[in-house]
Amino acid sequence: MRFEIILSGFGGQGVLFAGNLLALAGMYRGYQVSFLPVYGPEMRGGTCHCTVVISDKDIASPLVKEPGYLIILNLPSFLKFIPRLKKGGVALVNEDLVKRDEIENYEELTHHKRVIYVPFSSLAEEAGAPLALNLCALGAFNGLLKLFSEDVFVRALKEMLGKSKAHLFEANFRAYLKGIEAINKV
């Protein structure tokens, strides 16, 4: 078993937080994990991304060329990473910021790839936590794959928030549940 995920979005959408959280939950679940953030110059190109690998075996390379999963929060990320998605791979895409009709060669880009649209931004707003669209996306991801239980996720989220941001737990968790709910309807 091996999952390779690239998460990508604007700086500020919480992509690195979500990637780190995903890896942490994977570790708590007992898997081997790696989390590779991209820092520096690439951040200025409008997208910020990270790579997470979750596996039941040792992970040699934390770097992934063709991931099996994408979590895409904005349009530049879509254009950048969809071509790298493995054939038969799944992309969870933020419907609010990625409009199908704005993409010229959509059919060609997504050929043999499964693209699932979920309005992460508006769902997060509905959950009363507009900044937590990243958690919403993680909810959708785990709702789809059922990699770890709610307990494991809650433990990881609490660890990530720490004491200083513990008060944000409720809002973030609500957004996570919204994501699960949404994916179950798809």
Binding site: M27, V33, S34, L36, P62
Partner: peptide, 9 residues
Amino acid sequence: AILGQMKEP
């Protein structure tokens, strides 16, 4: 920087 900045258990 890869090992430096990546996270793993």
